[in-house]
Every structure is written in C-alpha cells, then in structure tokens.
C-alpha cells in the first residue's frame, strides 16, 4: 500500500500543527517521522489514520482518496503511545476485538478467531499471557499486545505513535530491534512517530525530519545524518557544534577573525557553521581554523569530552579520541574535519 499526502494543513486555533506537508510513502516501507514535540508528526499520523481531519490537503492510499473514508473504513492499524488497551478485557479479547466487531457478513467463526488470535500472540511471543488483564502486564508487554491487536485486522497500513516513548531505555532498545525484524516478517507499509533520533535512525528505512509543521528533510538514515539539508536537521540529529559566522565571498569570519575555511558557493551574509563534535580534530595551537583553551575534560568510554573556550569568546564541546589526553588549561588548535554552513 502506498500513501500519498499532498499539501496538508491543520490548525488548532491559531497554532499551525501542519503547514503544507507533502509526503510519499512506498509500499512495504518502514518510515520514521522524527521531530521535536509540537513539530506536527503525531498530527500527521492521526490524519493518515482518520483520527483527525485536515483543514485542507489530500491523503490517498494507493491513489484512492482516504479522506472520503472514516477511521473505521480505512483499515489502518494504529498503535498508541500509552497502549490504549481495553482495560476490562483480557489480553486475548483485546487482540480478538477487531475480529469480533466485523460486520456479520464477513465475521469469522469463533474457531477461526481463536486460531488467529493465538497466531498473533505467538508472533509477539506473548501467548502465555492470553488470560491476563492489561493492568497485570509490564509496559513492554502491553505495547506488544497493542501491536498484536492492531495487526489482527490485517491492516493495509500500520501506524505507530511514539510506540516506545513510555518505556524504559533497556526495553526500548530490545523492542526497536524486535519491531524491525517484525516489519521484515510481515512487510506492511508502516510509519512510526518518534522524537528519539537514535530510534529513528536505527529502525527506519527512511526518515522524515519535521519541525514546526513542515518537513525539513526526507532521506535515508545516512542521508539525514551525513548530509543534513537544513540548519535545523543538523542541529537536531547528532550532536553538533553551532557557531554564528559571517560569509563574505569565500571568506568565513567568526566575529572579526577570518577562519581558515573555504566557503564555496555560499551566499554572503550572516550564517551558521555546524560541525559534529567528533569531527573537530585537536592539534597544537595554530594548526587549525580555531584556537582555544581547554576548560574542562570528562571521559566517556572511548572519547574524552572537552569544553573549549574559543579565542572568539564562544565555548564549545568537542569529543576527541583518548589517544592524546587533554588537560584543563591546554591551548589547542581545532580543525573541523567536516563542516557545513547554512545561511541564516
């Protein structure tokens, strides 16, 4: 099932949750919507599911207009951040719900329903919990049951809203791997919303980065990390050093100090320079574009994180390998191995 979204706009009062969003999702894809809270990613997901309606724009599944249908007819599996399991039903009945509410004409007989639920509980590896109630399960178990319940209706599309957001870090990591392998197995077109970049980069085939109701970049996890399209994406994904610079022709200035960096094909004016923390190479004073005094050093496993006060006055944090120990008070030269400059 392909999904196509065209020029979607949704306002809540004066707040623009979606401000002209265009998106194409290919059949069988596992797509991540990544962005800070308030970026509109959940709103987009809910509109695709039919749980919310846009003010304008189009949504189509396989070319047919989805907005003409309600949530009930769209045949979309939706997994909620807080599970939304039916608290008065056993796990078994929760998973069976979608099969039991089908119109009489297409409803399967009891034996078929039982077999299907059993199969789904096996799929999420929780068949031994069939008789329990949601309140007796752990968060991770609840979310897997919620997923089994959504899959019961054989959805054309699977939508997951911050599926692991309410779980602790360890369970989250396990479920991520599990979700990816599950998607590989069932191969349903899936979109999941997350504010956790690691989750998006690890699980998804493609990542859509959103901010303020707009799509900033669509690309593979490598694309959005290695070649961020906008200043926002560079700042949001990965840990970046951000410095205000001024571009004049091919000269880049930090304050009034020209930097030994080449600015090619950039418009003159105020700009932002982005460097990944680990792309800042440390050398003797005078060896790089920047110079500064080490203020403070902490060790994190393989790297040392140093706070460096640049001669221009800004303080930045860099990650350096531990082959050469840094000490507070050292004066160092810093050379960005890779950097990007964005206007604005």
């Amino acid at each position: 099932m392909t999904i196509e979204v065209k020029n979607l706009v949704k306002k809540f009062g004066s707040f623009k949750a979606l401000d002209g969003v265009d998106l194409k999702v290919d059949d069988g894809e596992l797509l991540a919507l990544l962005g800070p809270s308030g970026s509109g990613k959940t709103t987009l997901l809910r509109i695709i599911a039919g749980l919310d309606w846009p003010d304008s724009g189009e949504v189509s599944f396989n070319g047919e207009d989805a907005l003409a249908q309600g949530a009930r007819e769209r045949h979309v599996g939706f997994v909620f951040q807080h599970y939304a399991l039916f608290r008065h039903m056993s796990v078994f009945e929760n998973v069976a719900f979608g099969l039991r509410v089908q119109p009489r004409a297409v409803r399967k007989d009891e034996a078929t329903i039982r077999a299907r639920v059993k199969e789904l509980l096996d799929l999420v590896q929780l068949d031994w919990l069939a008789d329990r109630y949601p309140s007796q399960l752990s968060g991770g178990q609840r979310q897997r049951i919620a997923l089994a319940r959504a899959l019961a209706i054989e959805p054309r599309i699977l939508l997951l809203d911050e599926p692991f957001g309410a779980l602790d870090a360890k369970v989250r990591k396990e479920l991520r791997k599990w979700l990816r392998s599950l998607h590989h197995e069932i191969n349903v077109t899936s979109i999941f919303v997350t504010h956790d970049q690691e989750e998006a980069l690890e699980v998804a085939n493609r990542v859509v980065v959103m901010d303020k109701g707009r799509i900033e970049q669509i690309g593979s996890p490598d694309d959005v990390y290695e070649t961020p399209a906008t200043a926002f994406v560079h700042g949001f994904i990965g840990e970046s050093i951000e410095l205000p610079v001024h571009v004049e022709g091919d000269v880049v200035r930090l304050g009034d100090r020209p930097l030994a960096l080449k600015a090619e094909g950039l418009a003159s004016g105020a700009s932002k320079l982005f460097v990944r923390r680990h792309d800042m190479l440390v050398g003797p004073p005078g060896s790089g574009a920047f110079e500064g005094a080490v203020q403070h050093v902490r060790n994190f496993g393989p790297v040392q994180r140093a706070e460096v006060a640049l001669s221009g006055g800004q303080t930045i944090e860099i990650d350096a390998p531990r082959d050469r120990e840094l000490r507070a008070g050292d004066t160092v030269g810093l050379a960005p191995r890779r950097f990007r400059i964005f206007a604005g």
Partner: peptide, 11 residues
C-alpha cells in the same frame, strides 16, 4: 484513546 483504538479496529 480506547474509543479511538476501537474505531480504528473497525468498531
């Protein structure tokens, strides 16, 4: 949310 879940499941 439970109502939304039920609706999306076809109820």
């Amino acid at each position: 949310q439970e109502e939304e879940a039920a609706t999306s499941l076809g109820a």
